[in-house]
Simulated scan of single mutants.
Amino acid sequence: MEDFVAIDDARTIPIEEYLGTIPSEGYRRAETSGLTDFALFFLDLMARNFRVSIEVPPVFVRTTSRVGAEVNPLGFIVVTAGMINHCLDAKWPQAYEILGNKAPAVVGENLVARLGMAWVVGHEFTHMFHFHHEVERRLGNKKSVQRAFEHDADLCATAGIFRLLQHMFGQVMSDTDIRRYASFVLFWIIRSIPDNNNGAGIHPSFSERFFHISLKLAILQENSSEIPDPNARHPRTIARIDAILEAAVACEHAYQQRNGFSGGSYFTEWRKYLSVNGHTSITRDWSKVSPWVQWLSGNQVDMPTSILDQRKIVLEERRAKKLKRKKQSLARVKNRPR
């Protein structure tokens, strides 16, 4: 979730009106129309896959060069013109250059751009159909709660992209190759977003986001007959992780070569992240938020805990804090000069 409140001349307008502001000469208007049509199609598909209880929201465009997206309180999704241009203009290699001849050969359209924009609006849609605003009203807007929301939105949008790619290529690509291609697509869109790597505020750094996106791509069930493996212990899941990681390493090397730097990468950040148990910190935050998401949205979510258990956890934390304050107070009294 972003906040676009600023003093500028930008307007929030329907997609059709925005398309009308793009010169008809050349291909830009057609490219943008294809991008937004694909995003709207993805929202419909995501609503069916997640069996959401709300209507698919309209999408509007904010006429600013800033790269971002948000949910408007009036119930629609806003993407900036900067985000649209980012998806259309960001440079990345052809999939076969990174993934080999098992990557899909797509002619005549920028599929990475379209899937990237779909992921962005899917992320914002998750904030809506998982009722994050209602959960926030109950739990407060603490940083840990906000980061849990972003974690949830990232992973639901990722699952949506994987299911879409299954729909598109399931008859011609293996399950592992679809996961590798999903990793390729999401790497290039998210990695190249400006100011996306510092982890400031409620949004995780790229290294943190892509760690969990990669893990999500590995543990997603191929179909309903597959036994869930959320802890990634089955040899099948471990093999998927290896394949996805190989693709991610190749993407990062290509990214560094294209941007003229070497040494250090988000893999270095991964090592730091794992060394301080960052990967378990965000999941602990999500485990506290997820029961409320499940209760309010009616959707099954990862790591569900009953509301009664959740309330028990909250009460235990409050008792522990109260006991700590009491001990500190007694210690001050005991040490007071007489």
Rank of each mutant, 00 (worst) to 15 (best):
S214D: 01
Q294E: 15
F162I: 10
I7C: 01
E134T: 03
E109S: 06
A30W: 00
R191A: 03
K272E: 11
N299I: 03
R48V: 10
C156I: 07
C156T: 02
R271D: 12
N335V: 04
T158L: 00
A182H: 11
R138F: 11
I98T: 07
A30R: 14
Y181W: 11
I307S: 05
A118K: 03
F50D: 02
D8C: 05
G199S: 13
F60V: 00
L296S: 09
L217A: 10
A39G: 07
P104D: 04
K102R: 13
L220S: 08
G20T: 03
S287D: 15
C251H: 00
G298E: 04
Y181F: 14
Q310R: 03
Q256E: 12
M173W: 09
E208T: 05
R180E: 05
E222M: 01
D9S: 15
L330F: 15
H167Q: 06
I219V: 09
H130T: 11
D177T: 09
L19S: 01
T158I: 08
I84N: 06
V121P: 11
A81N: 12
S65F: 02
S262C: 01
F187V: 06
L155D: 11
I244L: 03
P58S: 15
A81I: 10
G201W: 05
R163S: 07
L323T: 12
V78T: 05
L315E: 15
I244H: 04
Y266C: 09
V249C: 08
N101M: 07
Q166E: 12
L215R: 13
N85L: 12
N72P: 08
H253T: 15
F187T: 07
D285Y: 14
L155V: 06
E246L: 13
K326C: 01
S265L: 07
Q300P: 04
E25Q: 04
A103R: 06
